[in-house]
Design a protein around this nucleic acid. Sequence first.
DNA 1: CACCTATGCCAACACGGGTTGACTAGCGTG
DNA 2: CACGCTAGTCAACCCGTGTTGGCATAGGTG
Lengths: 191, 191
Amino acid sequence: MTSTPPPRRSDATRAEILRAARARFAADGYQRATIRAIAADAGIDPSMVMRYYGNKTQLFAAAVDVHLHLPDAAGIPRDKLGETLVAHFLKRWEGDPTDDALLTLLRSAATDDDAASRLREIFAAQVAPVALAVCPDPAEAALRAGLVATQMLGLAFCRQILRLPPVAAATPDLLVVHVGATVQRYLTGRL
Amino acid sequence: MTSTPPPRRSDATRAEILRAARARFAADGYQRATIRAIAADAGIDPSMVMRYYGNKTQLFAAAVDVHLHLPDAAGIPRDKLGETLVAHFLKRWEGDPTDDALLTLLRSAATDDDAASRLREIFAAQVAPVALAVCPDPAEAALRAGLVATQMLGLAFCRQILRLPPVAAATPDLLVVHVGATVQRYLTGRL
DNA sequence: CACCTATGCCAACACGGGTTGACTAGCGTG
DNA sequence: CACGCTAGTCAACCCGTGTTGGCATAGGTG
């Protein structure tokens, strides 16, 4: 929709900075990740980061744009919602954790108010609507979505961030079954 | 058991430092909490903190000693384990969050490896044994304990740290019922 | 070619933070 | 009293970090 600005010669550098920033923010969280380290990873001078992204806060905002890409509820058997959702996230986390902004945000949200605020927004914009579409009673949708969040964020935290042995070592299939059952109950079970 | 060392005149100051440290670490996490701020809260000079606790890492270690005080499984009806456990933690979080080291550790574990490591130890030392005592099959105990951790830490994160509206606003009773059912299934349900 | 803008580096500033060491006041004991 | 130990302050060091401004250089354009 926005008319694309003319391509600049520095586009490659911009992209490289963003790549490095995502990796550092994902690995270290907002505070520990330093502009200098990001610049070094990108192979350029720290001042370039400032020129292209203004300041650290804006760089973080640019680096962390979370799209959950939740599967369309309409195309899923109603009794498979839980398993499908859990499988979706486990698959998402299988590859390079660097490029899952959700994990970056989760890490940073523990100590950074801005990150926490953005995580709440994502919940409201991307999770709550799905719950609303799926839940039997719209009045219950918010609570149900919240319960799902406790389980899914807890899973993300234990498996990907804390690396709690039994959870980190479990096979995806196993988790899909057991955690999926919980999510399913939170979404469609009797409240 | 350890022979108590003779009381020193500085004991009050030591305690005050610890109190301030707990509050700051709880509010800000390990990195954002500064020695200077802790010292100011305690009404003394930063160098005193170093004298009495060595360095920031050791101060953190001293400030954050987590005892979950899990209720004795033997005294609880087998089918009320989940609800009892959830109620136990909700009650724990009701008061001043400053004095729940678990929340402090959870906050810091997201970005600090030492904190994460200690959280894993607490899990192994205090949670896993309970699961072992309660679970039908000892071979499954570790996984079951891990699943419980995903749900309980997720609840702590969403309610106390992220303050996700639907979860933060929910009444304890409601959470005890729904989350309790999940924990119960993880502990004693069919795997 | 001459000019100008975009791109990049370098050096430095300002600030905050952990940490250190010298120095001072209080208190008890021989 | 004199001595020594303890509790505490003060000032400074040293490092890392976000951020800034000036300078060089390269590409494109008249």
